[in-house]
Structures are given as structure tokens and as C-alpha cells.
């Protein structure tokens, strides 16, 4: 009885949920029907239903492929490095922005920092080639005119890693500050005033007020990033990578693209996709569990 009254009262709020729910059902749960391709010898013309079941044969084949391990290793490597380099970047940037006192300067900096997020990777790729190329890149032109040797930023695998990570920070750090800045507005201003009266300097205030205030946000974002350890976007490694550094740049998503879309081996590609989803789930649950134990913060 209380339930119906409650529903009648708040039905608008539930109605608002319909569209997002429909989105998840249609675009996230619906395609799961296709997961069965991983267990079938997929034939184009017979469709998913008509193709023959082959059990785990495709899994066996994928796990025997050397490229699978290479791309898996690279995915984990690039993502861990990204976590170390790119995860703290927005946090630091947000605190820096928070400390700014001039409102117009703060807003201007924010806008400039957001812009790279809206540039597509294809265009960033073009810019990166122009800036970091060995023969005609801007930086190397300057280096060479000063009499230094050119640096193969894009064609030697270790320097490429740095280019890859730096581009990632440049592209996403500004945008990543949004969540932190939102959380920062929630911190009671009086705390800062009280701290100031007690004689706390800027760094003390950051350490004892700002960071604890951001703890929940940091943990949530960390759990989400850990869940994404095994998933990697396609565009960034594909666009920034090239044949000379494939040893590091070839990742699961580019591998799926090659086997699935380019060679038409949908079964193999689905196997890799399913594998990624399962490992991703394990990671996110594990991180959540660990966080609950250690910090009492969790997302589920």
C-alpha cells in the first residue's frame, strides 16, 4: 500500500529513468545476444542462429596465438603506465585550479584545458606527426638547427611510449578535472577559514582539507580505471602507433579490428572481446572489494 502511494507521488522521477534504461537495454544488453558467436563457427549467410556450435574451440585457438599474448601484454602495460601517469594529472590540475583566486583567469585556463578533449584522435595523430616527426617534425627541426641529434619520438619504441603517454595526458587531463572541481565545490569554505586562522599554510590546507574532501571521488575513479585496465580505446594506439613500434603499440582493440573487421574472422574477434569483458569484470570487482576493506569506500 505504501508502495503505490510512493510510486504515485514520485512517478515522474521513474519516468525520467525510462530513457537511460532503454539505452542500456538496447545498446548494452541487446548486443550480448551476439556473444554466442564466440562459441560458433560463424557463417555470414546463415546468421547467428544458423551457425554451428563449436564449443570452446575458438578459445583454444586464440589462446595459442602469439599475437594474443603480445597484444594482451601491451594493453596491460599501456594501461598501467597510463594509470600511473594520467590518473594523478587531473587531480593535481584540479587542485591547482582550485587554488586560483582570479575568477576570469581560472575560467580561461579551464576552457583552454578542456579543448584537447574535443579534438578527435585522428586530428591529434596528424598534429603529433607534425610535431614529433624525425625528419620534418617541429621539435626535431629545432633540435637539429641547434646542432643536436634528432630524437626518434615516434619510431623508437621507448621514446614512443613517452610520446604516447604525454599525448594522453595532454588530451584528457583537463577534461578529467571536471569531476574533481565539482567535488571541490562541496567542501565547506569555513574549514579553510578555520585552518587559516589556526595558521595552516597552503600545502597544509591542501593536505588536510582538500585531499580528504576528494577521497570518495578519487577512490571511485580509481576503481573505474582499474575496471578498464583490460579494455583499451581503439583510436589512440591505432593513430599514434605505427609499424616501427608495433611491438608496443599493438593492443587488443587493434588486434580485434584486424582479425574481426579486416579478415572477417568474427568468431575469433568475439572471443577476444568476451575475454576482455570477463577480465574487466574481475578487475572491477576485485578493486571494489579491496577498496571496501581498506578505505571503507566502494561503488557497489
Amino acid at each position: 500500500m505504501r508502495g503505490t502511494v510512493y510510486l504515485r507521488r514520485y512517478w515522474q522521477l521513474y519516468a525520467l529513468l525510462v530513457l537511460p534504461l532503454a539505452y542500456f537495454i538496447i545498446f548494452k544488453y541487446g548486443p550480448m545476444w551476439g556473444v554466442q558467436i564466440a562459441f560458433k563457427d560463424f557463417n555470414f549467410f546463415q546468421g547467428i542462429g544458423g551457425s554451428e556450435w563449436i564449443g570452446l574451440e575458438a578459445f583454444r585457438e586464440v589462446f595459442q596465438t602469439q599475437d594474443f599474448y603480445r597484444t594482451l601484454r601491451n594493453t596491460l602495460m599501456l594501461n598501467s603506465l597510463d594509470l600511473i601517469v594520467s590518473f594523478p594529472a587531473p587531480l593535481i590540475l584540479a587542485i591547482m585550479l582550485h587554488e586560483l583566486r582570479l575568477a576570469w583567469f581560472k575560467r580561461l585556463s579551464q576552457t583552454i584545458l578542456y579543448i584537447p578533449h574535443f579534438i578527435s584522435w585522428v586530428i591529434i595523430g596528424g598534429i603529433v606527426y607534425q610535431v614529433f616527426g624525425t625528419q620534418s617534425g617541429m621539435i626535431n627541426n629545432v633540435l637539429m638547427s641547434l646542432g643536436f641529434d634528432s630524437v626518434p619520438f615516434l619510431t623508437e619504441k621507448n621514446s614512443w611510449l613517452i610520446t604516447y603517454l604525454a599525448t594522453g595526458v595532454w588530451q584528457s587531463a583537463g577534461w578529467g578535472t571536471i569531476l574533481y572541481l565539482a567535488a571541490l565545490t562541496g567542501i565547506n569554505k569555513e574549514l579553510y577559514e578555520a585552518a587559516e586562522v589556526d595558521g595552516a599554510g597552503r600545502f597544509k590546507r591542501i593536505w588536510f582539507i582538500t585531499l580528504p574532501g576528494l577521497k570518495t571521488t578519487i577512490v571511485t575513479l580509481l576503481i573505474i580505471s582499474l575496471g578498464n585496465m583490460i579494455a583499451i580505446g581503439f583510436e589512440r594506439p591505432f593513430v599514434i602507433g605505427n609499424k616501427a613500434v608495433l611491438e608496443y603499440a599493438d593492443v587488443l582493440s587493434t588486434y580485434v579490428y584486424r582479425t574481426g573487421l579486416e579478415s572477417g574472422q568474427y568468431t575469433m574477434a568475439t572471443v577476444v572481446g568476451l575475454f576482455q569483458a570477463i577480465v574487466g569484470l574481475v578487475f572491477i570487482l576485485g578493486a571494489n572489494y579491496a577498496s571496501k576493506k581498506l578505505t571503507d569506500e566502494s561503488i557497489i
Binding site: 609499424k243 608495433l246 584486424r258 582479425t259 579486416e262 579478415s263
Partner: peptide, 21 residues
């Protein structure tokens, strides 16, 4: 060739680039 072709093309190019450099 149908199965490994695309992947091997990529390997072939990788071989050319790496050995040349």
C-alpha cells in the same frame, strides 16, 4: 592465406620497417 593474410601483411610491413631501421 584467407585466415592469416591481413595479420601477416601487418607483420610483413613490421619486418621491413624494423630490419631497415
Amino acid at each position: 592465406e584467407g585466415k592469416y593474410g591481413t595479420n601477416l601483411q601487418s607483420k610483413y610491413e613490421e619486418m621491413i620497417v624494423k630490419t631497415a631501421m
